[in-house]
Design a binder for these strands. Sequence first.
DNA 1: TTTTCTGCAAACGATTTGCATACAC
DNA 2: GTGTATGCAAATCGTTTGCAGAAAA
Lengths: 152, 152
Amino acid sequence: MSENHQLFSLKDLRGKLYERGYKMTPQRKEILQIFVEHPEHLSAEDVYSLLREKESEIGLATVYRALDLLSKLGILVQIDFGDGCARYELNTADPNVHHHHHLICLNCKKVIEFDEDLLDELEEVISRKSGFKILNHEVKFFGYCKDCQTET
Amino acid sequence: MSENHQLFSLKDLRGKLYERGYKMTPQRKEILQIFVEHPEHLSAEDVYSLLREKESEIGLATVYRALDLLSKLGILVQIDFGDGCARYELNTADPNVHHHHHLICLNCKKVIEFDEDLLDELEEVISRKSGFKILNHEVKFFGYCKDCQTET
DNA sequence: TTTTCTGCAAACGATTTGCATACAC
DNA sequence: GTGTATGCAAATCGTTTGCAGAAAA
């Protein structure tokens, strides 16, 4: 069931690269591996330090280039939480599964994921009224998480 | 009618500043004035050059500081379109009026505004399920605008 | 062998900050 | 007068780029 919208696996990497004339390298493989092992929203710096923890001596510029490439190939998606750096996560393989939403706590900066998609209706209305062809959407909710509601 | 959700006016600036111990300065007034005259999504550089067109010799650092302050006071809101710089627009005074959505064209980078808010229902569902207290949301749709659909 | 990739260091662009001076109250 | 605000230039931080050597096909 949920295996069907499973995340992109390492196996498909070579093929996807080859399709577009890119080469398979150990660096690209290791960087993708990091995302398989860490299902978080990782920044380039995050990936870089996780690599160094594994004794991998991949340069930061290479990390940036790989993140960019993997996003272009649709393997990763870039998200921006307004914290000053681009973050990435594995793309879901099933195109019918829309991106989950993100709840961002204004107090503790925690990011909570939420899987509920009621936006199809909205997309349709907008498409009809504006003539805009919508491919994707990004929704962020700002507020206070359970823990921070009591504090403040 | 639509005057009720009218944008923040210059008159209230002094009071809002005073409330929180800030001082009224000609620079802050002029910067807010720019937003009243230009209902677009302005970046700090945009504001800076619009000021220079008006013979205003306000420094760029002051612009950055003012944008930050006006956002804290709730007079402006910061938006990020992923174009590498923070953008701002006047906040709507009426808290019942939710932020409009943004349609971002992947081809020509045009940003189109769209005023349809069907997200209240979604907010409620999320609040109930997650215990998150939602104050605000930000929705971006990515796709191709009317003009760019034919080209590509 | 040919082309793409990597790693380093330098370059970049948006934003922030330190500090002396100027201004609001 | 006192404390905050300004303006400038320098510093910062995430990210990009040029280039020579290394590695994939």
